[in-house]
Design a protein around this nucleic acid. Structure first.
Lengths: 212, 212
DNA sequence: GGGCCTGGGTGATTCCCGTTTAGTGTCAGG
DNA sequence: CCTGACACTAAACGGGAATCACCCAGGCCC
């Protein structure tokens, strides 16, 4: 009474997947779904179906759902970090560095809205602080890279208000504010994104940093 | 808890019955739980238990969970709106109005973090745009109240950059940025909230609005 | 009074979700 | 030829939101 092939709809199931290969497949599928449908839309079952394995199989490679999606976030932040590292090594004025970093940050957010939300908007409320550690650490390094030039500017006495610490946080927050609002409230009528970025950048830079 | 809230059949004839009472009870219980445990923590079952009623009963008074919580958000925004209305009628400089509105906004956020997140952080991404309409409309009126003074400032030619529309959005966003980051990422080491508010306000006001 | 509608309320049920358990088949190596 | 690790699976669990098919008390109108 062997039950032969009772599940035809499992299309082209991959019989073998050795080790880290499968892990990559899962991440790729998860990313695609997550980008298209957001955190809640990217369910374990959907991801598993896309890969062509059972939902249980995902737990071979990841501790839980959050870890899968945070891994995606991690990779995204790594891109951001590399941009910041590259910029911080260019031979340009610290103020210009700051401006370009913030500009890159906002563009990144607009280009990867779901990923941005996952990492920076506490979007899902349920991911414990512990689980976020890896991503959080990367975020810190990102922020460190950014606050380097700010400290330079502060040391040069060109900060109009606040300390290097608070100024860096406020600059970052202003950019986060505009992108997060536009991303999470797309139904509101916003000025064009380019204009919003420009005004944010101009306003906040001139407001916090003295012209030479 | 004994069933003490039984209604004696007084009130000969009420067109809508005592539906208001239950509705109010539900909202009160929901708000308490929601403030303490956030969106995910405030489950239908918990709210129903707190009221002393079956979970199904909540659907007599509200279409779904989101509507309950958005109702809470609505009440919160109404407070914010009344602050803005009051400020906009005071006989003070438009710039001062803007400053005080933003200050009140940030303080409101810090004092009601869960409510703020619910309404302004798209925190759960699952609430459809339609459902948010009521809250969204209130938010719009709030924003209108805020952009009145901004338009005055723009008309007086005191806007350093952007239009009245984009400047208002950017000012709002800067304040949203700092409070939303501090609220949703409490594990990061932040400068004191007072300092962050001060620096944000100073920076963004000086950056966008010309001194007289 | 007797029928009848109405509206708040209920327990059981449905459908997903993330996650766990108990296994199955395969294969490398001693 | 056994053994154990490995990649994987079906089935189930517990808990969410939401719906279903009912109850039952009261007001209304002959």
């Amino acid at each position: 009474m062997t039950v032969a092939l009772k599940k035809p709809p499992r299309s082209a199931r991959k019989p073998k997947g050795d080790g880290h290969m499968r892990r990559g497949e899962i991440l790729a599928a998860a990313e695609k779904i997550f980008i298209a449908e957001g955190y809640a839309g990217a369910t374990i079952r959907k991801i598993a179906d896309a890969v062509g394995v059972s939902s249980t199989a995902l737990y071979m490679h990841f501790r839980d759902k959050d870890q899968i999606l945070l891994e995606i976030g991690k990779e995204a932040i790594e891109k951001l970090l590399s941009i910041n590292v590259a910029l911080s090594q260019e031979p340009i004025d610290a103020v210009e560095k700051v401006r370009r970093m913030l500009d890159a940050y906002m563009r990144f957010a607009f280009e990867n809205p779901n990923t941005y939300q996952l990492v920076f908007c506490g979007s899902n409320e349920a991911i414990s602080i512990e689980k976020q550690q890896a991503v959080s650490d990367l975020g810190d390094r990102c922020f460190d890279e950014f606050s380097g030039p700010i400290r330079e500017i502060a040391a040069a006495g060109r900060l109009k208000t606040g300390t290097a610490e608070s100024a860096a946080q406020v600059l970052w927050a202003a950019c986060h504010g505009i992108v997060s609002l536009v991303i999470t409230k797309p139904s509101r009528s916003w000025a064009p994104a380019e204009e919003l970025m420009q005004v944010t950048l101009d306003g906040v830079m001139h407001g916090l940093i003295a012209d030479r």
